[in-house]
């Protein structure tokens, strides 16, 4: 089932410039949500909801964790939600990541605001994962402690070298592959980053799942606005990020 509900904000923190971390009490959505799915959040005074991926699914507490960036006036309005406010959300929506075998070796890659949905994957794999995260500079770095707690190997990159290693996540991925080839790669972040990762993964024959983003309408597959180019049965078709994704097998996605 999918639920439309107003759920209490348990806590809210600013964790970097324009990046907020909120926890919502929603036992029903939490019970059914899987990693890689999203919720569609109402921004008071705005017509369309804002899709935000799940950064945490705490079944014991019945809490969802959302880490999101203020990108415009709608997300700015959502960032004003405070402890005790009710957040109007619909979820869980979309298809999540394949987390069927925690004994696989995984490389998990997030770029910028693509990092939050990677946290629960790292929790799933723990020591069997290497997590590579990339940010513009030290001021934008988020969620490193959360990732370190999972037991995964955590590799931080910044474009300008002000934190972690200087360079892109693709440089770090190549280094990882020199040591050991994983069974699967998971990635979420800007399109050029995903394109670079998928190229490397292809060359090495590694299955990759990517989480995509597109402007959405209904969020449930009714309006068909969030189209992305994919290949199915040898034919190019527009799939829809909200319903067919946001997680896709990289081999299905046309990145060019």
């Amino acid at each position: 089932m999918k639920y439309s509900e107003k759920c209490p904000v348990v806590c809210k923190k600013a964790i970097a410039a324009d990046i907020f971390d909120i926890r919502l009490y929603s036992p029903r959505i939490t019970a059914e949500a899987v990693c890689g799915q999203f919720v569609n959040v109402k921004a008071e005074g705005f017509f369309l909801r804002r899709p935000i991926s799940l950064c945490g699914i705490d079944r014991e507490k019945g809490e969802l964790r959302l880490v999101f960036q203020v990108r415009g006036k709608g997300t700015e309005e959502i960032s004003r939600l405070r402890e005790g406010c009710l957040a109007d959300i619909i979820g869980p929506l979309g298809k999540g990541f394949d987390l069927s075998d925690r004994n696989r070796k995984a490389v998990i890659i997030g770029g910028g605001i693509g990092v939050p949905p990677m946290v629960p994957i790292a929790e799933f794999y723990g020591r069997n994962a290497a997590v590579i995260t990339g940010f513009r500079s030290a001021g934008a770095v988020i969620l490193q402690k959360d990732l370190e707690k999972t037991g995964a190997e955590v590799i931080l990159c910044t474009d300008d070298g002000t934190a972690g290693m200087k360079g892109f996540v693709t440089n770090a991925l190549e280094k990882c592959l020199e040591k050991e080839k994983p069974d699967i790669i998971y990635a979420c972040g800007p399109m050029p980053m995903l394109r670079g990762i998928v190229k490397i993964a292809d060359e090495n024959g590694i299955r990759t799942q990517v989480s995509l983003e597109e402007r959405m309408g209904c969020g449930v597959g009714g309006c068909l606005v969030c189209a992305c180019r994919t290949v199915k049965d040898g034919r190019e078709v527009y799939s829809h990020v909200c319903k067919d994704g946001p997680v896709f097998e990289a081999e299905e996605v046309l990145f060019s």
Binding site: F47, R215, G217, C223, L224, V225, C226, A227, V237, Y238
Partner: peptide, 23 residues
């Protein structure tokens, strides 16, 4: 029909524009 290239939606005050193109 495959429909139009994305983006296919734009928010407006109290509404939205869409250009799905009959996918």
């Amino acid at each position: 029909r495959n429909g139009n290239l994305p983006p296919r939606i734009a928010e407006t005050p109290m509404g939205c524009l869409n250009s799905v193109g009959l996918q």
